[in-house]
Nucleic acid binder design. Structure first.
Length: 160
DNA sequence: GCCAACGTTGGC
DNA sequence: GCCAACGTTGGC
């Protein structure tokens, strides 16, 4: 089993939205590297850190799970969508996605600031300079470390 | 709103 | 294939 971090802007689609929906298509990803992770590397049962980006504060809100094989993102063929891709050939779709479902809301939100402060996470892609991918692999150890942080009180931070 | 860091596009 | 211009991401 593999572990991932997937970013979503909560004002667009939050972890609460996923809890409400019970399942969702991870659509509108228009980055080849992120697509390749979904198409080539994700397996049903993989565990996902659901990350709120462009949020105040940004951080991990919950755990999700991959629940489908990869399949074409239907949004790419929708001319009304911002994520329509007129260059994508229906016989050979360019954009591929998977479905995810919620596993649990974390006992508490773990902010980006707190992640940055954890030595065990220093290698996490999210925390590397210039890393902007919206889908990133994380190691089992990193996944467990985040989960564990969420079950404990926040460490004292230098700020505020 | 700023802007650094990347990714993509398209002329050549 | 190079690379300048442009667009996007996302923390701050």
């Amino acid at each position: 089993m593999r572990y991932w971090l997937m970013k979503s802007e909560p004002n667009v689609y939050s972890f609460d939205d996923l809890l409400k929906d019970g399942r969702t298509m991870w659509d509108s990803i228009r980055n080849y590297q992120a697509r390749n992770f979904m198409r080539d590397d994700m397996k049903i049962g993989d565990q996902v850190l659901f990350y709120h980006s462009n949020a105040k504060p940004p951080g991990v809100a919950g755990i999700a799970e991959v629940v489908s094989e990869p399949y074409p993102d239907p949004v790419q063929f929708d001319p009304a969508s911002n994520y329509h891709d007129p260059k994508s050939d229906p016989d050979n779709p360019r954009w591929i996605l998977v479905d995810v479902k919620p596993v649990e809301a974390l006992p508490r939100f773990v902010s980006l600031e707190e992640l940055r402060g954890a030595k065990s996470l220093s290698e996490m892609p999210l925390l590397q300079r210039g890393q902007r991918l919206s889908i990133q692999p994380v190691t089992a150890a990193q996944f467990r470390a985040v989960r564990k942080m969420a079950s404990k009180k926040p460490a004292a931070s230098s700020g505020s």
